[in-house]
Design a protein around this nucleic acid. Sequence first.
DNA 1: GCTGCATGATGAA
DNA 2: TCATCCTGCAGCA
Length: 264
Amino acid sequence: MPEGHTIRRYADRHRKVLAGRKVAASSPQGRFTAGARRLSGRELLDVDAHGKHLFYRWKRAETLHVHLGLYGKFKLFRKNPPPPTPGTRLALTTDEVTIYLAGPTVCELIVPSQEEAILARLGPDPLKADTNGNSAEVFIANLQRRRIPIGAAILDQSVIAGIGNIYRAEGLFLTSIHPETPANEVSAAKAAELWDKSVELLERGVTEGRIATLPRVPLGKTAETDRLYVYNRERFPCRVCGGPISTGEMAARSIWWCNTCQAA
DNA sequence: GCTGCATGATGAA
DNA sequence: TCATCCTGCAGCA
């Protein structure tokens, strides 16, 4: 379930439990044995997140780069960890915690030039808006350079980093932008609104640990569609106007919108 | 128990 | 545009 908020939470959690400690590493699955051996026993210095990418920095070793893709997951155990499943790509352990990583698209060691290349092809991260003062302007400029529909543009991680399929649909709905609108035809003011809404939604996701876009959602178990406006809600009326929710495909992913609330 | 789909991204065609 | 990576789970028998 990894959009940008999930990745940020992993970074924060892993920094908290691993930074400043020597970490034992192994690859139960065997597909990262050499890398794990290289890291094992080193001290973790810091963990960074940008968009959906994670960077683990070590004393006297290369940087561990992880991208979870669609299936990847971390699991953290404080004590009595179960044995790793056969698919566990990487196990990180200290005296206090055991972390298992399964199913990532990327799990590799990289040198600084490779990290620079990764960051160079990522757009601004709404979760870093306060440290990168010109992020909104960069995002707006990125949109103005593209003629593709904005619903496709904001899934492109080089335009804005960290948005996934749920935030795409919800962000466009909450800013009344029709997903088919060509990116370069969205006004700067509207684009700024979309950036601000993305910041707000992702920050809320980090705080709450799940994606909720309705103003008030009861804590505890709720169906996903009870927390959202349009995503996966083609069987429900629009929460704002009562009209039908439309669905289709854009950038090879399903998308949902309201033709009335989101003007073409 | 099986099937298909999912909050992602890439590389081949 | 499509197949692939590879995991978990909802929905259905």
